[in-house]
């Protein structure tokens, strides 16, 4: 395998992260918001793997594994909360949850 450039990998991770961030700021559907969080976590994990591959060490992949585990846990709890969210507020609009206003 010919070498892939380190910087390009990191830039890819940055681009994916940023796209997830935009989605997070813009979309109002709670499920989409959670999906964007996943995108960002995935991008961060990609950055770890790239870094690990730079040095030819498994540490990057190990970190990715942990990120993965954390993402799974977070999705489980997050979707459970989404279910409760819909029950109390009637729909999945993030903007409905503004009781912290003021």
């Amino acid at each position: 395998m010919a070498a892939v450039s380190l910087d390009h990998g990191l830039i890819l991770a940055a681009i994916l992260f940023v796209i997830g961030f935009v989605g997070l700021l813009t979309r109002r559907n709670l499920i989409v918001v959670l999906a964007c969080i996943e995108i960002m976590l995935n991008a961060a994990g990609l950055a770890f793997v790239v870094a690990g591959a730079r040095w030819g060490r498994p540490d990057g992949q190990v970190m990715f594994l942990f990120v993965l585990a954390m993402a799974a846990a977070e999705v489980a709890v997050g979707l459970a909360l989404a279910i409760r969210f819909q029950q109390s507020l009637g729909r999945l609009d993030v903007d409905d949850a503004d009781e912290m206003k003021g």
């Binding site: 070498a3 910087d7 700021l25 591959a53 040095w55 030819g56």
Partner: peptide, 28 residues
């Protein structure tokens, strides 16, 4: 949001630099 992330992306790319380090060959 687009403006914000454009700024962010620019900063990140600037920080990463375009130095074209090659990755180590070989798989882990």
């Amino acid at each position: 949001p687009l403006v914000l992330v454009a700024v962010l992306l620019a900063e990140l790319i600037y920080g990463i630099g375009l130095s074209n380090h090659a990755l180590q060959a070989g798989e882990v």
